[in-house]
């Protein structure tokens, strides 16, 4: 099991995983009706997307067999599941932050987002975190307002004139 996992970290393994996923995707595409619908100049609607997928498959397969197949990419060498989870979490938090921001306003939610983000990234002083979060928010808001872009004012927009 361990050997398989180690092998999967090589370019060979990565190429194999890519190829399998892409072939499944290609089969799915071929089964969807719009792909085969012919347009005015004789090409099918799915012709060019399929070309893209086929190219992806070709190069993934080559990865399994070429001269560098035994190498482990630098990033993969140190990669763990925690990394992946961390990345997803940061992106999800950012998406959530954006959704909330449109509702209750940039000036309110941004310091909160920045505060927690800075804290977990290693600045372990709440006071410094809060200070920098507020300063950065104000600067960003100021810059955008100066050049005429209105950031979501949210609930503050009803009390503040700007």
């Amino acid at each position: 099991m361990k050997r398989v996992r180690k092998w999967l970290r090589r370019n060979q393994g990565i190429g194999l995983i890519f190829s399998i996923c892409l072939i499944v995707f290609l089969v799915y595409l071929e089964l969807t009706p719009w792909v085969h619908r012919e347009v005015r100049d004789g090409f099918t609607l799915g012709f060019f997307p399929v070309v893209g997928v086929v190219l992806l498959i070709i190069f993934s397969v080559i990865m399994v067999f070429d001269a560098r197949r035994r190498e482990v990419p630098e990033g993969v060498e140190v990669f763990t599941f925690k990394y992946f989870l961390g990345g997803i979490l940061i992106l999800a938090a950012t998406g959530f932050y954006f959704t909330i921001m449109r509702k209750i306003g940039f000036l309110i939610i941004t310091p909160v987002y920045l505060l927690f983000f800075i804290y977990i990234l290693g600045l372990k002083s709440w006071r410094k975190c809060a200070l920098s979060a507020v300063i950065m928010t104000v600067i960003v808001y100021g810059v955008f307002t100066c050049i005429g872009v209105r950031l979501p004012p949210g609930i503050l927009g009803r009390i503040l004139p700007f």
Partner: peptide, 26 residues
Amino acid sequence: TRFIKVIILSAVIFLLIGNGLVFAGE
């Protein structure tokens, strides 16, 4: 001190959301 800070922070957030509700009910 950390506990106090958390309390203050939640109070601020609560106030802001409360405000929002008031304004939304305009």
